[in-house]
């Protein structure tokens, strides 16, 4: 997946390259029940979006469609200039390498150390060990966990575990970072801390999409907010400048 070389390093709303384009996306799991209906959305490179709405509004479905975990029933999606619906199954790995994904349940490997959990995204790229060490250290430093590189995830707090998951998502320097309720299991203080990490990543020029229903967080950090209800977009809020 060709990544844009024009990374400003200054963050949101700086560039006009469209990173994610959704055209009339609809998804139906069961006859007569639409999880998503006619979603149109254009997300530019370096933007920071919150997707919000009550449970069952289609946030997770939308995210899954973007990283091609599931296919939409209708519509087209273009990521960084490539229609990902035309990507054959055995080439999905190309799309995934351009994205980092963070989940509410962290999805860490508890029998492996923090280092290996983060490095897994680099092992698949066949990068030399020395380079892996450097990149893992940098990713862990970004989330302020480089001191705990050789510990097992079970020895870390929930907030720290989520930060390991974030480090894993950004270690191969993807252009897009997707997060599905990354603060769902955390108390408000930790949740603020985690979103601050996402903000920091966004400031480095990455496009960030976070699904959340935490109104407090969104009020505090949301530059661009997409409101979903019963699978439909019911509103968008776009701030001209990035918040903290």
């Amino acid at each position: 997946m060709p990544a844009s070389s024009r990374s400003s390093g200054l963050g949101a709303t700086f560039e006009n390259i469209v990173m994610i384009e959704l055209y009339h996306i609809s998804k139906q799991y069961q006859e007569g029940q639409w999880a998503l209906l006619d979603i149109n959305l254009h997300i530019k490179k370096g933007e920071f979006w919150f997707i919000t709405g009550p449970s069952g509004s289609g946030k997770t479905t939308l995210l899954k469609i973007i990283f091609r975990e599931i296919l939409p029933t209708r519509g087209q999606i273009v990521i960084d200039g490539i229609n990902i619906l035309r990507l054959p199954d055995h080439k999905i790995w190309k799309l995934r390498r351009s994205m980092g994904i963070v989940f509410q349940d962290f999805r860490l490997l508890f029998h492996k150390k923090v280092f290996d959990n983060v490095a897994i995204g680099l092992y698949v790229l066949g990068i030399p060990v020395k380079e892996i060490r450097r990149r893992v250290f940098n990713a862990l430093r970004l989330v302020n966990l480089h001191q705990k590189m050789w510990e097992y995830p079970s020895h870390l707090s929930y907030g720290e575990q989520q930060r390991v998951a974030i480090a894993r998502a950004v270690v191969n320097e993807p252009q897009i970072l997707l997060a599905d309720e990354p603060t769902g299991n955390l108390d408000p203080e930790l949740a603020f801390e985690i979103i601050s990490v996402f903000k920091e990543i966004n400031r480095q020029g990455k496009t960030v999409l976070i699904c959340s229903h935490d109104k407090e967080l969104i009020r505090h950090f949301g530059d661009k907010i997409l409101f979903l209800f019963k699978g439909k977009i019911i509103g968008k809020e776009v701030q001209p400048f990035s918040r903290k």
């Binding site: 990283f67 055995h90 790995w93 995934r96 390498r97 698949v124 790229l125 191969n172």
Partner: peptide, 10 residues
């Protein structure tokens, strides 16, 4: 599952 998400080939 994680390997698939981080872009491991089949």
């Amino acid at each position: 599952e994680i390997l698939r998400l981080v872009g491991a080939t089949n």
